[in-house]
């Protein structure tokens, strides 16, 4: 699934980043295969996802989240 489908209390792990569509800055912020992501708040109507990436709190757009493939952590 892609990152925009992430649910509260369901942490995920990045498995693939579509580098052709995602800005380099995203990768440099730590969105690399293996990085753990959790949703901090329910998605708001402004199209921003407030997430925690390996302890780093940030908000990204749903458009970018759609280009990041993730898998659930059991």
């Amino acid at each position: 699934m892609t990152l925009d489908k992430i649910k509260l209390n369901q942490p995920v792990k990045v498995c693939k980043v579509y580098t052709d569509f995602v800005p380099t800055k995203i990768v440099q912020l730590g969105f690399i295969p293996g990085a753990e992501i959790a949703l901090q708040r329910l998605p708001s109507k402004n199209g921003l996802l407030y997430i925690v990436l390996d302890g780093f709190y940030l908000a990204i757009t749903e458009e970018i989240a759609k280009k990041i493939e993730v898998e659930k952590i059991d």
Binding site: P23, K25, I26, L29, Q40, L48, Y50, F56, Y57, L58, A59, I60, T61, I64
Partner: peptide, 11 residues
């Protein structure tokens, strides 16, 4: 420079 909405949410 393209502006990608990435907002750091500091404590």
């Amino acid at each position: 420079f393209k502006n990608h909405v990435i907002i750091e949410m500091p404590n």
